[in-house]
Write a protein that binds this DNA or RNA. Sequence first.
DNA 1: CCATGAACATACCTTAAAGGTATTGCTCTG
DNA 2: CAGAGCAATACCTTTAAGGTATGTTCATGG
Lengths: 299, 299
Amino acid sequence: MDLRHLRYFIAVAEEKNIGRAAARLHISQPPLTRQIQQLEAELGVSLFIRTPRGVELTEVGELFLAEARNIRSVVEQATERTQRAGQGKLGRLDIAIFGSAILDVIPKLLRAYKVMFPKVKIVLHTMNKGEQIEALQQRRISVGFNRILSPTPGITAELVTTEALLLAVNAAHPLASRDVVPFEALAGEPLVLFPTGVRPSFVDTVVALCQSAGFTPEVSQEVGDAVTAVALVAGGFGLCLVPQSATVLAFPGVVYRPLSDVPTPGRVDLSCIYRSDDQSPLLAGFLAEVRRFRAGLRT
Amino acid sequence: MDLRHLRYFIAVAEEKNIGRAAARLHISQPPLTRQIQQLEAELGVSLFIRTPRGVELTEVGELFLAEARNIRSVVEQATERTQRAGQGKLGRLDIAIFGSAILDVIPKLLRAYKVMFPKVKIVLHTMNKGEQIEALQQRRISVGFNRILSPTPGITAELVTTEALLLAVNAAHPLASRDVVPFEALAGEPLVLFPTGVRPSFVDTVVALCQSAGFTPEVSQEVGDAVTAVALVAGGFGLCLVPQSATVLAFPGVVYRPLSDVPTPGRVDLSCIYRSDDQSPLLAGFLAEVRRFRAGLRT
DNA sequence: CCATGAACATACCTTAAAGGTATTGCTCTG
DNA sequence: CAGAGCAATACCTTTAAGGTATGTTCATGG
């Protein structure tokens, strides 16, 4: 038995006439007669009573009609679900995030993704870079977001966005009175650095920039994340370099100032990382959305 | 897409190796490769990752494997149910019964039928002969049971069993003292006759027998059914001729005696009736059981 | 009562697609 | 580096689905 047999059977049962059903199926009448006979022979059952005006279903035929329609709908649903899944539109995507990226870029990106792939369940995990790589290798997550990258075999990184650096400074600090702060003005000032943890990280970027500008930063405090760092700035612990997206943190007493004369590159990247061999349509769909997002930023 | 594609896909998914799956399916490897490629192309989805050691399912493939197995089981159940129905082993059978047949033959027959066709739901209706014929013609029932028949167009009758006649007599009556009662002894005795209602019926058989024996019966009472008739015998209303199966009615004060010299045929039939054009497998199965039952009685 | 038309069945041919054989190409392994 | 194992490809064979022509049956109307 074949899905064709069922399609033909349903057509004949609905038309109550083999000739008309054949026309509807775009085949001629004799083959349809034969297919129905085959189906009956295979089931060992009489499905139709032949009358001079056409055919009508037997009781068994009525039963089988219900079964056939059921099979048809099960098959349709199965193919549809499979195709959705194949387009990355169905399933579950585990994503790891960390640090200041949580503040602005990730929410925007995920919102855009949700619009395109509404049936994908997104599960967010908070992990630092080392944890992300391990989780990727163990297939516990499919995507991670990070600012600083060192090439890792088997892991591909893809740039999501770059952001300018801003100075977060206490409103009472003399530098807060300036609209634009020259980078060299940071020399000798106590800095709050983040994050602690797996190196290299954003800390190293900031230190490298200072050294490019000809001075060694004075470290007031190292903390785990951007939010804590800005909170310490509000508490007067010193200055802090943050990615632009950190400005969503409106701590009282903290102002953000653009910097001038920042040594190259002067910006900080946000990248997403994933297994190089991951062929999942879910990942493909997500990466497509990441690229669309980045293209949208450029315009 | 085709059920064959699903069968092949399941085999490959289970073997994780196209060559072995082909052997299991009793085809060679290249056609199987092609069928899988077709399936993937039709779904627009990659189901397997080809490795040097075989193939393994993608995430989408895993999903589709579950779907395919589901479809397979739905199809299997559908064909099985249809075949059961085609053999008269599934469905509902409405049967009408009446009179003394209820007492013994019908329960035995239905019990035997239930063993062979356990999934058929039997619905019993109590109808007299006229009602049975009308209900058959209106397709409200499929089978009726009756003792006396007059040929009816479109209705076929089939003998189920014949039973000897016994005399039901009050234990205080002089005839109760005899082991065998000659039929002529009934002349002049008051008789309880049944059933009232549509003629011809068992009443007419009894009257005809009496006239064959050379006397006209003295009617003490006519009642609707055998149970009432025997109850009246217990109450001293007279004698009553009953089919053998009525002996299950063990009323106190009533004894059953065989008769001798009963005019031919001397027995009473029980037949079942059904629409001559009824091709339902349910009816066919039931009639097969009736014939088996009758053959069993003969031995 | 016969002719007609509508319907399904049958016979026979054509064509599309499933299956088979031989071979290639790619990896991993010893 | 050669061989084993596996999937893919090329090309042929065979099966079965589809098409055309015709037969058979039954109801209907003149």
